[in-house]
Write a protein that binds this DNA or RNA. Sequence first.
DNA 1: GCAATATACTAGGACATCCAAGGGTTTGGA
DNA 2: TCCAAACCCTTGGATGTCCTAGTATATTGC
Lengths: 168, 168
Amino acid sequence: MGTPLPRDPIADARLNWERHGWSDVAAPMAAITAIMRTQQILLGRIEAVLKPFGLTFARYELLALLSFARSGALPMNKASALLQVHPTSVTNAVDRLQEAGLVIRSPHPTDGRTTLIELTPEGRTLAKRATAVLNSEVFGQSGFADQDVDQLIRILGTFRRNAGDFSG
Amino acid sequence: MGTPLPRDPIADARLNWERHGWSDVAAPMAAITAIMRTQQILLGRIEAVLKPFGLTFARYELLALLSFARSGALPMNKASALLQVHPTSVTNAVDRLQEAGLVIRSPHPTDGRTTLIELTPEGRTLAKRATAVLNSEVFGQSGFADQDVDQLIRILGTFRRNAGDFSG
DNA sequence: GCAATATACTAGGACATCCAAGGGTTTGGA
DNA sequence: TCCAAACCCTTGGATGTCCTAGTATATTGC
């Protein structure tokens, strides 16, 4: 997984698709496979940057989300919806963040079913520090040209809307 | 995770970034986050299609890779390199595919360290059937416009090359 | 008012990914 | 020739994701 391959494996897969008579879907196959691989590369970079903070991307995302909430607190179901992950994934992340003293669970004032996740001062500080490093080490050096960033935002935004992520 | 949100959470995150004075990296942050989410959506669709076959995407990828190898067999380390995943992930996938009778492990004829993964007739048949459904249900209905597919292949191809995936 | 339905969170299980470490096989330089 | 270094695969552990099911609380409708 270290040395670069002599050929692009995804381009090769596309050629294989075409050779087998699936030319009509070869291009989307290649695009989708490229998205999978790109996500893997980016996630690796992000996790490497967050590791010194004792954070994973899943935990960081939750921390960052809370840090932008005015009160520094959110119901778990709201966090699940905004992060677009399964509720059990939020439970998992909160468990670990709570162990680390970065968030606390507190009961919802009016709805007994709901649990609020609240940022602790330590959590807020760590979120700030982690964001600064992510900005400089990952987002600031994404390797995408500016106009390509715009293209990605447009293309993937349309895709996500069509997939039912949001209606706006 | 079912109902569409009223607003695009990634666009909101971008606004938050800009509000906090990180405008210079807000766009790449949004693009990268969109890639993460898009991958999640696509993986979900793929897994749903493969589930009736008793396959996951990881196992399918290995099966497909083998089906394109002339001999229907590949060394594990080669599969690991081409699929760009950790060797232990290949071990895991092969274990399960072997239990299902879709591949068999065989010793390398000259190198005692190497294990060959070989497609069984059942494995080859299943790969073919699964590919047909993936083509029609996922790749053929990706939701990307044709020119956007080309853009994605170009943008992500450049990114992957710069990230060291391949040198070609 | 009370039962039926809907919602919120958590527990347990199946999978996948990576890392670290260990045992076997080859290769290559002293 | 021979031993150290490199390489290949597997095991064990930590994390994350999702699904299914179960418990508790709210809401709805009769």
